[in-house]
Amino acid sequence: GAPPLPPYSAGGREVTMKKGDILTLLNSTNKDWWKVEVNDRQGFVPAAYVKKLDSGTGKELVLALYDYQEK
């Protein structure tokens, strides 16, 4: 199953993602919540729920390892 959710501390809205989604990583300075862009929406997802990909394009991409439903 998915890892436990860290307390929400990102101070911005969250976004929903599905397992297998490829998201653009915008900011990973917060260790628990990373800012991503998905379907032209920006928001935060739990860092433990995604994995960085080596895209080779200069853009940082992450793979959704679990479904996440915004609150």
Rank of each mutant, 00 (worst) to 15 (best):
T57M: 12
E14W: 06
E37I: 08
A2W: 06
L53D: 03
W34D: 00
S55Y: 11
K35T: 11
P46F: 02
Y8N: 12
R41E: 13
L63T: 06
G1N: 13
P3L: 06
W34K: 00
V50K: 00
T29P: 04
V36Q: 00
W34P: 00
L26M: 06
S28F: 06
L61P: 02
V15C: 08
S9V: 09
V45E: 00
Y66P: 00
K31G: 09
D21Q: 13
A10L: 12
G56A: 12
P7V: 06
Y8Q: 11
K52M: 12
S55H: 10
D32V: 07
N39F: 08
L65H: 03
G56T: 14
E14K: 12
E14S: 15
A64N: 00
P46L: 03
L23A: 08
L23V: 05
Y8I: 11
S9H: 15
W33P: 00
A47Q: 04
E60V: 14
T24H: 07
T57C: 11
G20D: 05
S9P: 15
G1Q: 11
K59Y: 11
N27T: 07
V62N: 01
P7Y: 04
S55L: 12
K19V: 08
G43F: 07
P6E: 02
I22F: 05
P7R: 10
R13A: 15
M17P: 00
T24L: 15
A64R: 00
I22V: 12
L53H: 04
L61F: 11
G43P: 01
D40W: 07
N30W: 04
K51S: 09
T29G: 09
V45T: 02
R13N: 14
P46Q: 01
L26Y: 03
S9E: 10
P3N: 05
V15N: 04
L23I: 06
N30P: 04
L26S: 02
V15E: 03
T16R: 07
E70H: 11
V38E: 04
K51L: 11
P6W: 02
F44R: 02
A47M: 04
V15R: 02
D40G: 15
K71V: 13
K59D: 10
V50Q: 00
Q42Y: 07
A48I: 11
T24W: 12
L23N: 01
L5V: 09
N27M: 07
G58Y: 11
D54F: 10
A47F: 02
G43K: 02
M17C: 05
G20T: 01
T29E: 15
V45Y: 01
P46R: 02
N30D: 11
F44A: 02
Y66W: 13
A2Y: 12
L63Y: 10
K52E: 07
I22H: 04
Y8C: 13
M17A: 02
L65P: 00
K51T: 12
W33D: 00
A64I: 02
L63W: 04
Y66A: 04
K51I: 12
P6I: 01
S28H: 08
N39L: 10
F44E: 02
